[in-house]
């Protein structure tokens, strides 16, 4: 199997991207740690999508890597969970949280930039060259880290720029040195394409616009499948199988899926060409079990409910690469801002 040509690399985060994990409170954290593999719950549609993406095709294969912020002590449980789901990651990296605590590197326990970027560069070093698609979520800094990684691979950020970003992000000097060394050896091939951010917290999509149109915030994996269809990374049948799985296993209805479809059109992630192709492909495609009759027509009906696109609603302008230092600074300011509640007669004194 390993001798097959690698056609694509899919890099995934785990918690809140693949698994529905709550760790917002100490209680959630303890519960998550004590969960058995059987009790762990997937994000709807993720397993079907991953299987469709890695489905062997024309003598090539797709490679799947997971880089997670969960502590390495979770490995046996998580590997068992993958086994239950029928997923075999090619690389599975967990965070050395205990080591960080013992070494007194407390910033690294919470911080993700240094750990994830170093891991991404390390995995890339030893791996084949192929187009990459990344999956993360809105809980931490995935959009920031993935965009930076993509811009490093595309030669858009130089060494000095990287040094400053890592410095501002509070990355420990040893990790920073490791990242800079790996960067010096990095293939600059511009191979990193789409970045999907699962909106686990339902964050405003506009929050991610700073990273440009490459980053696609998604509410569910049906949306990811549709964008991959628009990118011609998937054909229509796998997209419909993701939808059918979400309906069958997670209680989704046609309305929720149609709303998700319309949301992508409104945000310009599905253009007129993709919609036209979908309409044509639907005529020639076989019925997918579990989907109600006329499912694609219901989706297309949502297009007609929107404003005519000629002229109005021009595409948002964006010039990259992002100002990573500016993003970190804005993030810091936001955290430091404590807004006073206005009192009855004006601002609280």
């Amino acid at each position: 199997m390993s001798e097959l040509m690698v056609r694509h690399i899919y890099r995934w985060d785990l918690d809140k991207t693949y698994l529905r994990t709550d760790f917002d409170t100490l209680r959630d954290l303890i519960r998550t740690a004590l969960q058995t593999p059987e009790e762990k719950v997937n994000v709807p549609g993720v397993v079907t999508l991953l299987k469709e993406l890695t489905h062997q095709n024309d003598g090539s294969r797709a490679l799947v890597t997971f880089i997670s912020g969960s502590p390495s002590q979770m490995r046996p449980k998580l590997e068992r969970k993958f086994e239950l789901d029928g997923i075999r990651p090619d690389v599975f990296i967990l965070k050395p949280t205990l080591q960080n605590i013992l070494k007194g590197r407390f910033r690294a326990v919470r911080g993700q930039v240094g750990y994830k970027l170093d891991s991404l560069l390390r995995v890339r070093e030893g791996g084949p060259s192929a187009p990459e698609t990344l999956f993360g979520d809105d809980a931490e800094q995935d959009a920031f880290i993935y965009s930076l990684y993509a811009d490093l691979a595309g030669g858009k950020v130089d060494r000095d720029g990287l040094f400053e970003i890592l410095d501002r992000a509070g990355v420990y000097s040893t990790t920073r040195a490791s990242i800079l060394e790996r960067y010096a050896r990095m293939r600059i091939d511009g191979n990193v394409g789409r970045i999907f951010i699962h909106l686990d917290r339902h964050s405003a999509p506009g929050r991610f616009w700073v990273y440009g149109p490459r980053v696609v915030p998604i509410t569910n994996y049906f949306q990811a499948a549709l964008v991959l269809y628009a990118d011609e990374s998937l054909t229509l049948e796998p997209v419909l199988r993701v939808a059918a799985g979400m309906m069958r296993e997670h209680g989704y209805g046609v309305v929720e899926l149609a709303n998700s479809f319309q949301d992508l059109i409104r945000r310009r992630h599905l253009g007129a060409e993709a919609i036209e192709r979908l309409s044509q492909d639907a005529r020639g495609s076989e019925a997918v079990g579990g989907l109600p009759a006329g499912f694609v027509e219901r989706l297309l009906g949502r297009v007609r409910a929107l404003a005519p696109r000629g002229g109005g609603g021009a595409t948002r302008g964006w010039e990259g690469p992002p100002d990573y230092v500016g993003v970190l600074e804005a993030d810091r300011r936001l955290r430091e801002t404590i807004e006073a509640e206005p009192g009855l007669f004006g601002r609280r004194q």
């Binding site: 506009g206 569910n220 709303n259 409910a305």
Partner: peptide, 25 residues
Amino acid sequence: DEIAMTEALFELDHNSERIQLYHAP
């Protein structure tokens, strides 16, 4: 107005699975 509603939603936390827009000019 779909364009105006889309722009407003873009900047707000929301669950897009539960919202449909219908254009009325």
